[in-house]
């Protein structure tokens, strides 16, 4: 049993990388006082735009750029409603997710004849995203959030927005950072982990990311720990599938979501969210 998990461990680290990127992005945006439920749709769209860009140019690097571009577009739409119009963030996020689901399935069917989604995508040579996600970004984000005046003001927007001039500017910046990270994550999902786009391929990773941000108490150390715990549970799931102990496949598929619920409920004691999180 233990060996099974150990064998699946490297795969687990790779497989939870898009999730980690999403967690880091959502952490930044929530620190600025915004809950972006639309991160699920953001990743889904970037998974698709990454494949489109990679196929059109036959370049993985441009594919990743395309992923980030797609995420930025979704972020612009979310920000226009949630920041500029001060709309309810949960309603806006839900609408963004429906929009992403509808648009990607529409475009997917429209372009099916063009074979763009049928041919396999260009392969990645060397995994540059993995060290970025697990080492470079956490350190960089921690430095920016806790050691610069920009970071201080960004966090102040989440605690007491009336104390900060130009709140919208900081929230837009946070949203752009999130889009960059979630875009990389979405692109990694379709170009790195799988060899193309599939409808609704994010399968709730964005919502799992939101839960891990809460579990990690809006800190990067907690985010890494939460993603690691989740990754281990996922590894266990792969190991159980491979070992086929006769456990039903469909119940194993539910494990990540059950684990996420347990992670959410495992937040011992009172969690202190950013004071003005979700306040319009």
């Amino acid at each position: 049993m233990f060996e099974l998990v150990a064998d699946a461990l490297p795969l687990a680290v790779v497989a939870s990388t898009p999730l980690l990127l999403a967690v880091e992005g959502e952490l930044v945006v929530q620190r600025s006082g915004i809950i972006n439920l639309g991160i699920e749709g953001m990743m889904l769209v970037s998974a698709m735009t990454a494949v489109l860009a990679a196929q059109l140019t036959k370049s993985v690097a441009i594919g990743f750029l395309g992923g980030v571009g797609g995420a930025l577009l979704v972020a612009a739409l979310f920000g226009a409603f949630a920041i500029a119009m001060r709309a309810d963030q949960i309603v806006t996020g839900t609408a963004i997710n429906l929009l992403a689901l509808g648009v990607t399935s529409f475009v997917y069917q429209e372009l099916q004849q063009g074979a763009i989604f049928v041919q396999s995508v260009p392969r990645m040579h060397g995994d540059f995203v993995l060290p970025l996600a697990w080492v470079v970004f956490p350190i960089a984000l921690a430095l920016v959030l806790w050691n610069t005046s920009f970071g201080l003001r960004l966090r102040a927007c989440g605690e007491n927005p009336t104390a900060v001039p130009h709140v919208a500017r900081y929230r837009w910046s946070a949203l752009a950072i999130e889009a960059f990270l979630a875009g990389l994550g979405g692109a990694y999902l379709s170009l790195g982990l799988s060899s193309g786009f599939a409808e609704n391929m994010t399968a709730g990773r964005g919502f799992i990311a939101l839960s891990i941000v809460i579990f990690g108490r809006w800190k990067l150390k907690g985010a890494l720990l939460g993603t690691a715990i989740f990754g281990l549970a996922a590894a266990l799931q792969y190991a159980l599938q491979a070992a086929s102990y006769g456990l039903p496949f469909h119940l194993l598929l539910a494990i990540p979501y059950v684990v996420t619920l347990l992670i959410l409920c495992g937040v011992a004691g009172r969690v202190r969210a950013p004071e003005s999180l979700g306040v319009r």
Binding site: H250, L253, A254, L261, C265
Partner: peptide, 26 residues
């Protein structure tokens, strides 16, 4: 446990979908 219902209800959707998948295959 002070877990926000906006997330728990969404996660319960995925669990229900897989539970249904298990039921109709098992």
């Amino acid at each position: 446990r002070n877990a926000p219902e906006v997330l728990t209800t969404i996660l319960l959707n995925f669990i229900a979908i897989h539970l249904l998948g298990w039921c109709v295959n098992g």
